[in-house]
Design a protein around this nucleic acid. Structure first.
Length: 218
DNA sequence: ACCCAGGGTCATA
DNA sequence: TATGACCATGGG
């Protein structure tokens, strides 16, 4: 395993990332739900709709009409599903007295609580833990699995928790800031390079990133 | 016209 | 437990 080395390569190539792009912790949480299987540019439109309607708060979302909320969310896709998910999340959030009511909970407990919210799965929970609560949790996404299976460092079919454990064990000595940057760099790399260059023949990891992953290159 | 994007839930076997 | 169907917009 050479996870730190990959991090260094990505950091040299792309520099410091500024994640999570948001004006508040709550906006991070909403964005984490809206970005499920959705391009970020579309999420920004939905977030802007909420801002313009003065509805980017848990209370406003809770009391908004479903169809109205869905209209605001429309650009981010799955708007009916996401309207429900946002309401579930906001209800949970208010029930636990918002950020100040949650910030002292242990990470494992907080993660368990987040996963109990309907519509919040592992990646969304970890986005929220890392980027809103500043916890040292490694966010695994499709880019992560694809890149590291291509690098020959993990099995492409590895499940979420196992892959997260690999990262967190190997990077246990690193800081929250590194976890923050690392995931952002993986996404940047996935969007800018590997997407258009499946065999990584132009990528910054050339020399490391050989085409060992046949399935992902087809 | 097709594929995919910073996933997750639910029904079925 | 493990697949498959489903959700839905916008950009390439």
């Amino acid at each position: 395993m050479r996870l730190k080395g990959v991090y260094q390569s990505l950091k040299i190539k792309y520099g410091r990332q500024k994640w999570w792009p948001a004006d508040s912790r709550f906006e991070v949480m909403v964005g984490a739900i809206l970005t499920q299987n959705t391009a970020w540019v579309n999420v920004e439109r939905a977030l802007n709709n909420l801002k313009q309607a003065n509805a980017l708060s848990a209370k406003a979302i809770i009391k908004s009409n479903h169809d109205v909320l869905a209209q605001w969310l429309k650009p981010s896709g799955y708007f009916n599903v996401k309207a429900e998910r946002l309401k579930h999340f906001c209800q949970w959030y208010l029930d636990h007295h918002s950020y100040d009511g949650l910030k002292y909970k242990h990470t494992a407990k907080l993660r368990e609580m987040l996963l109990s919210v309907k519509g919040v799965g592992p990646e969304t929970a970890d986005d929220i833990l890392l980027y809103a609560f500043n916890r040292k949790v490694f966010v695994v996404d499709t880019y992560t699995r694809r890149l590291f299976s291509r690098l020959g460092l993990v099995d492409g079919e590895i499940d979420y928790e196992s892959l997260r454990a690999i990262f967190e064990n190997e990077l246990h000595a690193e800081t929250v800031k590194t976890f923050n940057e690392y995931h952002a760099l993986i996404v940047m790399h996935g969007k800018e390079v590997c997407k258009t260059s499946p065999l990584c023949d132009e990528c910054c990891l050339q020399g490391i990133c050989k085409q060992r992953d046949v399935s992902a290159a087809s």
